[in-house]
Amino acid sequence: MSQYIIYFHQQWVGEHSDEWFAERGALCNAVVSDMRDAGVLVFAGGVHEDMDAAFTADASSGTPVISDGPFAPAEQYIGGLTIIDVADVDDAKRWAGRIAEACGWPQEVRRVS
């Protein structure tokens, strides 16, 4: 078994109506339920959109320093993620496709090592 992270950047979502998001939420929840039933779900969740609430922990100086805000300014930031534990890359691709279809925006997939 191999773990994969399937994620999207908030900027990939685009502008949509509240009704559109409500419909997509139900579709996404159904895919997560299917992953849970299949025994491949490790974790799934959205990330809070308010970057002002982000903070950084940096111990590169030898002492942990906690700072408000993201580590570095970025044009794109993670909007949500799913971690799955599957037999092979083909399974990861299949689940990523289902998530992308349900959400209505692209997903990026990387193996967790």
Rank of each mutant, 00 (worst) to 15 (best):
D37M: 06
I84N: 00
A44T: 13
N29E: 15
R36C: 09
K93T: 15
D58W: 00
G62N: 02
I5M: 15
E23H: 05
R94P: 05
H16D: 05
V31H: 01
A102K: 02
G14C: 01
G45S: 01
E19V: 09
D85Y: 00
R110N: 06
W12G: 07
A92S: 01
F43P: 03
Y77H: 12
A72T: 15
V47Q: 10
M35G: 02
G39R: 07
D91L: 00
G39Q: 07
H48G: 13
H16N: 10
F71R: 00
R98P: 08
A96I: 03
S33K: 14
R94T: 14
G14H: 02
G69T: 07
A57G: 15
V65N: 04
L27K: 13
T82N: 07
V86P: 02
W105M: 02
M51H: 04
H16T: 09
V31S: 06
H16I: 11
D50L: 07
V89W: 05
G104K: 05
Q107L: 07
T56P: 01
P106M: 01
P64M: 09
E108P: 11
A96Y: 03
R111A: 10
W105Y: 00
L27W: 00
V109Y: 02
K93R: 14
I84R: 00
A87V: 12
D88R: 08
R98A: 12
T56S: 14
C103E: 07
S61Y: 03
R94W: 07
L27A: 14
T82D: 08
I83D: 04
S2V: 15
V86K: 03
A26Y: 01
F21C: 04
D34T: 05
T56C: 05
A74M: 05
C28N: 13
A57F: 11
